[in-house]
Design a protein around this nucleic acid. Structure first.
Lengths: 138, 138
DNA sequence: AAAAACATGCAACTTAAGTGCATTATTTCC
DNA sequence: GGAAATAATGCACTTAAGTTGCATGTTTTT
């Protein structure tokens, strides 16, 4: 409890009730969640607040937004190892078209790609799509 | 003119006036366009029609949709060499955060990526973000 | 030329994202 | 500790993109 509070403070986020709850919520999930997912998990609070909360988390480097091609933004906690270094976490994401879940594959880094002359890369986004381990076992 | 008509027919698309115009429009551009871009280029026609036209093109393998992270779907013509083979065109896209243009880098293929056991990949999406050659020259 | 199939245009709906502003809670500073 | 300042929350509303239903118009088929 104290631990989460300290973590939020480290990121310059005031640890309000909702924020603590949302952090726990995100922490329990091991998949990326949409704002709707979050909303469903919080009967208490209101969409706008949850929206602004996740945006605050994002701005302060606690979560990253994932664009998996479904057209809806998803969010996942930054892993601690990525939080330390200020290097951007260029891990890839896997989107399962069967269960619609998206997971971070944090230990799969995106390979370096050489571009035509004049292009400067600042960021990248790689999403693999297919069926995940859970769905393939069924 | 006839050439485009034949091309559409080859893709089982009836060559109506709007479709011919849209094909030309897409062909002239060398960047991916949004539905809004198309709309702006066609005072004549209506959003719904343009929407359905581009979707018809997509369904019949004439264009591919690109999700560059801006939250708006973009479309670009499939290159002829990709049309022949039925292998999915796994080229990558570059999105310029300065001019907001997105281009297909068709000769840059996405490298193979090995996944954890149980994951089966069917498709993938790689978008690099940064500044393009034109913007860097300015 | 009539029937069938398809394309187009208009209106309306859905969903997600985002903003303005009043109210409530938390810090800061004396 | 209490007042002022700052920030968080909740509600209503707006925007933007995508999408569908249906009536009308056009093309194809026979």
């Amino acid at each position: 409890m104290d631990k989460i509070e300290r973590l939020l403070r480290q990121h310059h986020i005031r640890p309000t009730a909702i924020r603590l709850l949302m952090y726990k919520f995100l922490h329990e999930k091991n998949v990326a969640v949409t704002l709707n997912d979050i909303e469903s998990g919080f009967d208490k609070s209101e969409r706008t607040t949850l929206y602004r909360t996740i945006k605050t988390f994002e701005k302060n480097g606690l979560v990253h937004q994932i664009d998996d091609g479904t057209g809806v933004a998803k969010y996942a906690l930054d892993e601690p190892e990525n939080q330390k270094g200020n290097s951007q976490d260029l891990h890839l994401h896997f989107h399962c078209t069967s269960c619609n879940e998206t997971v971070c594959l944090t230990d799969h880094k995106i390979p370096h790609i050489s571009l035509p002359k004049g292009f400067v890369t600042q960021d990248m986004n790689l999403v693999l799509k297919g069926t995940c381990d859970k769905c393939n076992r069924k």
